[in-house]
Design a protein around this nucleic acid. Structure first.
Length: 297
DNA sequence: GTGCTAGGCACCATGGCATG
DNA sequence: CATGCCATGGTGCCTAGCAC
């Protein structure tokens, strides 16, 4: 037999109330049944959770270890109940999306906003991480779908191209290479110092695959774990950055950064939608996914 | 003495399961 | 499908032991 949520509920109630007598009315049991529930839980775990000090119960180390886990489990159970509480229309079934950084930060908020203007938007939960973590989330049934900017070779997942994202080369207006007043040559770009995302990120992978074929190598002036930090580094003149136009659009508009003209061809990278075919997607999640597929970029 | 925990006992309600 | 058996989990009552 396994431990039950009811036993954990009694355990937490006894911890909160300080005694079985005080906890009993909280969990709608008699004192004896409360005591029995604690004993049964301890028996199943083969561990004492409370030290018996005279007439008092004192939480011991095992109990202290269990308490936060029990509270988390009860909270999760409560969330599950609320999700299916159709009597309360204010509570909507959640929408879980796992997204890589650029998409989650710069595209997804706008998509959710546009979707909500014509649809009832379920409470979104957006998990932002690198591509590998997004793949793990979708593969592990922890997200309705994933949005990535890197490659996915996981055979359990269905990968569909989403849209092409434009990359631009930017720097501070005062940066020396911006003073030349002409298109930068491959030789000049090869000698330049680049501000890059960390290895393993989808953006780093995209930038390298877009630039390396033309420049052969990139001189790294600094590695940063997010694009916002790269923007700030470029702003203070630390080097050149190759970022999504969506990422730098605000700084370009304000004149804080300038787009460099180069002899490079237009740079694009693909974004992808990840789904797990076995996952039963709820209607609202399916609806939002279709909205993403058909959105006007 | 009071208030608490813990255990025993009888009894009841409920649900799963085998059987006819 | 209806029925009976059994396990489970509950109640209420009682008692013992213990600390303040």
């Amino acid at each position: 037999m396994r431990i039950s949520l009811r036993q954990l509920e009694v355990f937490v109630a006894v911890c909160n109330a300080g005694s079985t007598t005080a906890a009993a009315p909280v969990v709608s049991l008699s004192q004896s049944a409360t005591s029995a529930a604690i004993n049964e839980l301890e028996s199943l775990l083969n561990t004492r959770l409370f030290d018996r000090v005279g007439k008092r119960l004192v939480l011991n180390g095992f109990g202290e270890t269990l308490l936060p886990q029990a509270r988390q489990l009860l909270s999760t159970a409560s969330q599950i109940e609320q999700q299916f509480n159709t009597a309360n229309p204010a509570i909507k079934l959640g929408l879980r999306i796992s997204s890589s950084t650029t998409i989650g930060t710069y595209y997804l908020p706008r998509l959710l906003s546009r979707f909500s203007t014509t649809n009832s938007l379920p409470t979104p939960s957006v998990h932002i991480a690198n591509t590998a973590e997004v793949i793990a989330k979708v593969s592990g049934f922890d997200a309705d779908f994933g949005l990535i900017e890197g490659h996915c070779t996981n055979p359990d997942l269905f990968v569909e191209p989403w849209f092409k994202d434009e990359l631009v080369v930017v720097c501070a207006p005062t940066y020396p290479l911006n003073q030349l007043g002409r298109k930068l040559t491959f030789k000049e770009l090869r000698a330049a110092r680049w501000l890059l995302r960390e290895g393993g990120s989808g953006t780093r992978e995209s930038v390298e695959s877009a630039l390396i074929p033309h420049l052969n190598t990139l001189v790294c002036a600094g590695e940063f774990s997010n694009s916002e930090a790269i923007k700030q580094a470029a702003l203070v003149g630390l080097g050149l950055a190759c970022l999504s136009r969506a990422v730098v659009a605000d700084f370009l508009a304000l004149g804080k950064l300038v787009e460099l003209q180069t002899t490079l061809p237009p740079l694009f990278r693909n974004f992808y939608i990840l789904t797990r075919p076995e996952r039963t997607m709820l209607p609202h999640a399916r609806h939002f996914l279709d909205f993403c597929r058909n959105m006007d970029h």
